[in-house]
């Protein structure tokens, strides 16, 4: 769309809603990124043994391992602690936002988001990360 970030980035999208996961995958692939999706926290943890994404987009409300538990686990494992994580959630209460930022989430994207908003925020994080 606008200027593309340097190089292709690998982005992991974790959302139990297949439709949302596909939408995000589509938007970000449109931005020129490589996207892998996981439909649960457990599946995502399995995948993290094989791949090391540049960014994780994480839903909070998921059955099984939820987003807040997932981020805690990722942040205490050495090999994954450095991966930036952006929350992507329907919970808009300031307490939820504060809790996520305490867990070192880099961004808090509220659903419903527009395609342009999502692309802009993701590109901003990746640009900062490249510096």
């Amino acid at each position: 769309m606008k200027e593309k970030p340097t190089g292709r980035h690998l982005i992991m999208v974790i959302d139990d809603e297949q439709d949302v996961a596909s939408l995000v995958k589509m938007i970000l692939e449109g931005e020129g990124h490589q996207v892998i999706t996981a439909l649960s926290g457990h599946e995502a943890l399995q995948m993290l043994y094989q791949v090391k994404p540049d960014l994780i987009l994480l839903d909070i409300m998921m059955p099984g391992l939820d987003g807040m538990e997932f981020i805690k686990i990722v942040k205490i494992i050495d090999s994954t602690a450095q991966i930036p994580i952006a929350m992507m959630t329907a919970r808009t209460a300031p307490e939820d936002r504060a809790a996520a930022l305490r867990e070192k989430a880099v961004e808090y994207i509220c659903k419903p988001f527009t395609a342009a908003e999502l692309a802009e925020k993701v590109n901003k994080i990746l640009a900062q990360d490249n510096k």
Partner: peptide, 22 residues
């Protein structure tokens, strides 16, 4: 849960609509 259930479908709908419009 209500918030989640209302917003999630809306996210999918609006996202695809935006994407189509682009």
């Amino acid at each position: 849960n209500v918030s989640h259930e209302l917003k999630t479908p809306l996210t999918a709908i609006s996202g695809y609509a935006d994407y189509l419009a682009m």
